[in-house]
């Protein structure tokens, strides 16, 4: 079992997201450590992209802040290497195909292994195109994480049967961002996923409150939260870490009881 799958062993996982370099890498380092201390089971590190087509306004703005602060893929690799001196929780990169492709997929994945990244999520790479990236990941022991959407329907079994690490279930149509209500029948999707997948599944997109997190974690194996955290960082800038810690703790507590 991969380190990522282990993050779900015997518990419901809480998975927070942060955009690296928003507003600078020193802040991101404090935020990641705060998340680990607050009980995060797995952390998604976003490598900013100029044109993040799967993101809503909150994470789009974080990408702009990070890139205008001068962060680059190389600086993020160095940052993760430094982080790994004490941070133990599994870490996955969330970014876009061109960030990995332009770096050289093989070179990118090798750097991931060197610095201690456990998986990669690319929201603009569906099942049909994953052979561009998955073989290099497989060869180096990095999980290539697949997504399932409310529109996946007859595609669920195909995607789930080849899933690695965990399956990212997109809760709603549209882009990332908080939603007052999640209308998708998540339990029906999870039921189908579990027929084919050997890995756990977690639900993301639109989750911001402890109640939502608890409900989604109860239906699946965990809850993923991005925009709500990025908003706290956007509002508090370099002082965001304690606020993120408090928030992640409340979410983890809710998920734990799910």
């Amino acid at each position: 079992m991969s380190k990522i799958s282990q993050a779900f062993a015997d518990k419901k996982a809480f998975i927070p997201f942060v955009t690296c370099g928003d507003p600078d890498l020193e802040t991101t380092a404090k935020v990641v450590r705060a998340m680990e201390e607050a009980g995060a089971d797995l952390i998604e590190l976003g490598i900013p992209f100029s044109d993040p087509t799967a993101e809503g306004p909150v994470i789009q703005a974080a990408n702009v802040r990070a890139l205008s602060g001068g962060v680059t893929t190389d600086k993020i690799f160095e940052f993760v290497k430094e982080l790994r001196k004490d941070v133990k929780v599994p870490l996955v990169f969330m970014t876009y195909a061109n960030v990995v492709y332009s770096y050289g997929t093989e070179r990118f994945v090798k750097r991931c292994v060197e610095v201690g990244i456990d998986g990669i999520i690319l929201p603009d790479v569906p099942f049909e195109e994953k052979e561009e990236f998955a073989p290099a990941c497989r060869a180096n022991g990095v999980d290539f994480i697949s997504l399932i959407a409310p529109t996946s329907e007859d595609r669920i079994a195909m995607i789930a049967s080849e899933a690695e690490g965990f399956l990212y279930i997109v809760s709603s149509l549209g882009v990332t961002g908080t939603r007052s209500e999640i209308k998708t029948d998540i339990s029906a999707i999870v039921e189908q996923v579990r027929k084919s997948a050997k890995v756990p599944c977690a639900v993301g997109f639109g989750i911001s409150t402890p109640e939502q997190a608890a409900r989604m974690a109860a239906l699946s194996d965990g809850a993923i939260v991005g925009s709500a955290i990025v908003r706290i960082i956007g509002e508090n800038g370099r002082d965001a870490a304690p606020y993120v810690k408090e928030y992640v703790k409340s979410m983890k507590d809710a998920v734990r009881e799910a």
């Binding site: 603009d124 569906p126 049909e128 195109e129 052979e131 697949s146 959407a149 996946s152």
Partner: peptide, 21 residues
């Protein structure tokens, strides 16, 4: 190779899963 719509190495369908169907 499951990728569709190739012109040499170019093309393909690099889009979110939500849009695949």
């Amino acid at each position: 190779n499951k990728s569709k719509g190739r012109f040499g190495v170019h093309g393909g369908q690099y889009i979110p899963e939500t849009l695949m169907n």
